[in-house]
Design a protein around this nucleic acid. Structure first.
Lengths: 347, 347
DNA sequence: CTGAAAGCGCTAACAC
DNA sequence: GTGTTAGCGCTTTCAG
């Protein structure tokens, strides 16, 4: 039951041994030579009293808290943060660590970011995960250098901190390949207007995949708009009214794809019979609920959280080196989630 | 900069005083009589060395960690968890506390819930927030009684723990009142089939609001289905093909409302000109992106997180009493979020 | 006005 | 095989 007032000493008294022995037994200290008899006595006393270790005292003594700090941007805005947290929590607990969470915002001042990290440092976390809500380049707070740290879904401006991000380019290639495989040859891209890595990476992947298939990647139609439903709607309308419109459209994200659905409906185009669409992000609420379901690429948030945590713990435990990883970020795959928005083009 | 190796002792040496004095100065101990001179010297030395307190040591000594445990169900599934976390984090930090997060699942075993709480107890959190992902009745782990605790979006089966939940009934009344105010008199309800408090509460509110307006609440059409897009779609189709179909529909949640949108479109009904719709939940991704935007009731997740945290801290600091609150749960308002799905009925 | 000493609960050398 | 001792970094009586 973990009665808060029971200490190692009480167990020692109850078992008729010293505190040291109790500590040795309960922690399975390898070099401790203690009789099986005594071991049993101690363990029995411990459960009988409902003993639970005081991790504070342990931490103070061992200089290890078993705590990881997670500073996460805009936790409330998207479900993405949740997946990162879940991946991190699963990975952390599998190795006996717990998570301390601090929320920050993408627009937070340098001062405030620094004090977030300071709060974690005061608590003597063994390491810090720093997660952003969309793939971007981050000015990391200076004091982050004082502790093992890994960035999630972001890279540091100086490439000074180990980082893990989605493979934007490969994801876009998968999208195009999926459309090609269904038989499409006139393929367009509805891109975002923001100057962020995913905008550029996905465009690169789009063009390369087409070129490698023997099509003219440079000439394929790319229309842009804000990465929202309305932006997708407007860009899609323009693209679908081209003289020789594409039969397959790859959208920067699921929200833009949702706009494309509406544009298609207004123009009398059925999905997927008349028009195939591939999204990006796999926002369950959108992709799963559109009609037909949207085929899209999933962002590996869970995996990034888990990878970052595993790597961080390795570094903390001396089983790995973070410095080597700082140079270029680790990229993780964006798997295709097939629903119902891709079909062969009307011949 | 919070250099991890600087302690109170180092500051003491640098300032030429004792550790006690440093502690007194840095913590503004009220009864400490220390000259302004010395105070300045100490403070200067502290910032100069980049001193940061070791919260572990403080906690061990004072028996207060300033840590709140938050066990949250299915963090990754919806953005709701994020809003609870954000509300809790804001409220916690405003009062100098931090959050330790543990993820669990709605289907977790009793054993596993208990060990989640135990992990938090071992870390000597000052209190625990236990949050579920939808309003429900919860069998709380027994060891939760060992520490101040508040439930968020759930009530305990024995009404033994303080709790905060949304006011389902009032929310439903607001939905109906909104439709009434727009001039509707034939109003239907698309309800969920699950046996959970929100299903019953919203139905109660629906009927009462109609009756109070002089309409026959008992006779108003209520069709039910699974609380998903498809369930809403099917229930809406049935309802709209009644001989005297409603001109306004209140939906159990935004997902069902999304289904109702599709049913309306298929039947040639324009929203809001031919049919007004009100949802529930305010899932931004859906409600904000439907066309027209969905008028809906927001669940007060942020507010519940913040309220629970404030109340918990009050109890920890002896400024409030949790036992009194356990008897019946605190209910928080579901505010109306007006978008574009309600208009007067076609005369 | 300031400091010495004890101790929060635990672990790790080192003795026995 | 098991116990003694010291100390992690801090706060808090209690003396001076």
């Amino acid at each position: 039951m973990n009665n808060k007032n029971i200490g190692i000493k009480d167990v020692a008294v109850a078992a008729g041994v010293s505190a040291t022995t109790v500590s040795h037994v309960l922690n399975d200290v390898p070099y401790a030579r203690i009789s099986t008899e005594t071991r049993e006595k101690v363990k029995a006393a411990a459960v009988q009293l409902g003993y639970g270790p005081n991790r504070l005292a342990q931490a103070l003594r061992t200089q290890r808290t078993g705590l990881l700090g997670l500073v996460s941007e805009d936790i409330a805005t998207t479900p993405h943060a949740g997946r990162i947290i879940l991946g991190a929590d699963d990975a952390a607990r599998a190795r006996g660590y717990n998570l301390m969470i601090i929320n920050t915002s993408a627009s937070a001042s340098d001062e405030s970011r620094k004090s977030d990290v300071d709060a974690l440092l005061e608590r003597r976390v063994d390491g810090i995960l720093y997660a952003t809500m969309y793939h971007r380049i981050l000015d990391v707070p200076g004091n982050l250098a004082n502790v093992p740290a890994v960035l999630v879904d972001a890279v540091s401006s100086g490439a000074t901190i180990a980082a893990v991000v989605p493979d934007e380019e490969a994801g876009a290639r998968t999208a195009v390949t999926t459309l090609l495989a269904a038989g499409h040859t006139r393929i367009g891209f509805l891109n975002n207007t923001d100057d962020v890595p995913s905008t550029h990476g996905r465009l690169r992947g789009f063009r390369k995949a087409l070129s490698e298939a023997g099509l003219d990647g440079g000439a394929a139609p790319v229309h842009t708009g804000p990465s929202e439903v309305q932006g997708g709607y407007e860009a899609a309308r323009r693209m679908l009214q081209l003289s020789d419109p594409p039969t397959g459209i790859f959208c920067y994200n699921d929200r833009m794809a949702m706009g494309a659905y509406r544009a298609a409906a207004e123009l009398g185009l059925a999905i997927p019979a008349d028009l195939s669409i591939v999204g990006f992000d796999d926002q369950e609420l959108i992709a799963g609920n559109l009609h037909p379901g949207l085929t899209t690429l999933a962002l590996p948030h869970y995996e990034m959280g888990a990878w970052a945590t595993g790597t961080l713990i390795d570094a903390i435990e001396g089983k790995g080196d973070l410095a080597g990883l700082a140079l270029d970020p680790t990229v993780l795959d964006c798997p295709l989630v097939t629903r119902g928005s891709v079909a062969p083009p009307r011949s």
